[in-house]
């Protein structure tokens, strides 16, 4: 389930981000990890800390989109 969320989120934001290769690699890594939604957000938030400034925004955009998709699925 989280796999499809992060993949859909990536597809939605791909045209808006600057570091597409880095984000793609991150999405593939998390897709394979098969973790819960909360775990997914937590992992992404941890990645923010070490990331360079533009990559940090891209990750935040990805987190935002995942949250958006999740809340939409719930409703």
């Amino acid at each position: 389930m989280t796999g499809s969320i992060i993949r859909t989120a990536f597809d939605n934001i791909a045209s808006h981000i600057s570091n597409i290769d880095d984000i793609r690699a991150l999405v593939e890594e998390l897709e394979a990890a098969d973790i819960s939604f909360e775990g997914l957000i937590e992992t992404l938030q941890k990645k923010i800390d070490d990331a360079e400034v533009t990559l940090r925004t891209d990750i935040r955009i990805l987190i935002n989109e995942c949250r958006h998709l999740e809340s939409r699925m719930k409703s």
Binding site: I13, H16, I17, T57, I61
Partner: peptide, 10 residues
């Protein structure tokens, strides 16, 4: 705008 467009979605 590439990035800003995304930010406008909210």
């Amino acid at each position: 705008g590439k990035r800003l467009r995304y930010h406008l979605k909210t």
